[in-house]
Design a protein around this nucleic acid. Structure first.
Lengths: 200, 200
DNA sequence: TAAAGGTGATGACAATTGTCATATTGGGCC
DNA sequence: GGCCCAATATGACAATTGTCATCACCTTTA
């Protein structure tokens, strides 16, 4: 019997996934969580084989969850199930020791199969992502990322400079540099590109 | 037996929802679709009681689907199941004759109950949305919306003006007007506000 | 210790954007 | 026809943004 813990912040989807996996005779969903923190504590309470988690969740993302589990040498295999096709996410997930990365776009009957394969020790990555995975690397520095994130929210140069304690001129330099690295014509486009690649 | 058609673009979620609803003895999922167009044609082939659909889908949104079904006097009751809490969406859904608007955040066991109630002729709206629903009305004109959408993508005034065959000056006027209506300091913030309210 | 490299700041200039007042145009409609 | 209105344009000006060269300070490292 493969013991599964599911973490997913949309209750409806969580319940539905749980129903889907419970249909399999060799699976049992031992616990469910609506955020990463809860999943972390439930994982420690239960004996679990597979942790199936989304990425974007309140309090703790799925990737942070994987990192935290890795840090305490937790033996369960972590599997990401998400909509995000950003190569940045995949890379970070692999670094966190994740054993599977599936997309919610994949047919629902492929999930059970993937769970079994990962349980057997294989590593599964959504085919759509394999090619692009080792493509471009995030070219942004931390400062550029931070500045770009604020610009993305519509903050002006002035507001950004106050928010992160840098001079307005420096902020503009970072934005300009980011745009140029990303081949964008302005801060908005730059932010969109970064966002699309999971760099933001 | 309540006959259900499900439209949802994420296969995994579609399959999971299908599994969830099939657990109920009085339900039968007669068809599933991955976009609105497909749902439209399947609805016409099958005899269906409830159409359960997401909003954002390729080819045809859930709201457009509801409108199309309303136009041909299709008798099935349409139910929206989505993540979007934008009041704009809810309003447009109600205008399209939708009988239920649930959030994916709601507990999964509330879905079956809602389906039954809607089947009995009730109208169900997620409680989180009821209060804000009749709040602010979309203040944007069609042109403003169109211009703002392009600006949101990082297009410059010049590019926008070419895309929609208006002078650059007029585009700037529209953007300025939109910002002022929305209380935003610049186009980016304006676009974000509009987006948040489902006006974009 | 000197060279190299990273981080942040400045100044200058052009381009773009935001704002506003004021045209122009082409319907509806009395 | 004449009037009103909405949609679109223009021009002018200030503010913001994008770009670039250069400088000042620290660390790191050879």
């Amino acid at each position: 019997m493969i013991k599964i813990l599911i973490a997913e912040d949309q209750s409806m989807v969580l319940g539905a996934l749980s129903a889907l996996l419970d249909l399999e005779d060799d699976f049992t969903v031992v616990a469910t969580a609506e955020n990463g923190e809860q999943a972390m504590s439930l994982a420690q309470q239960h004996d679990v084989d597979i942790v199936l988690t989304d990425i974007e969740m309140p309090k703790m993302t799925g990737i942070e969850l994987a990192q935290a589990l890795q840090r305490i040498n937790y033996t369960a295999k972590v599997m990401i199930l998400t909509t995000f096709t950003r190569s940045g996410y995949l890379r970070r997930a692999m670094d966190a020791g994740v054993k599977g990365y599936l997309l919610k776009d994949a047919p629902s009957d492929s999930l059970a199969q993937a769970v079994r394969q990962i349980h057997q020790g294989k590593v599964i990555v959504a085919p759509e992502l394999i090619t692009q995975a080792w493509g471009e690397v995030d070219p942004l520095t931390d400062k550029e990322r931070k500045v770009l994130r604020l610009a993305y929210e519509g903050k002006t140069t002035e507001q950004i400079s106050k928010a992160i304690y840098l001079s307005a001129g420096t902020v503009r330099n970072y934005l300009s540099e980011a745009s140029s690295k990303l081949g964008a014509a302005n801060r908005i486009e730059a932010a969109r590109i970064a966002k699309q690649n999971g760099w933001l």
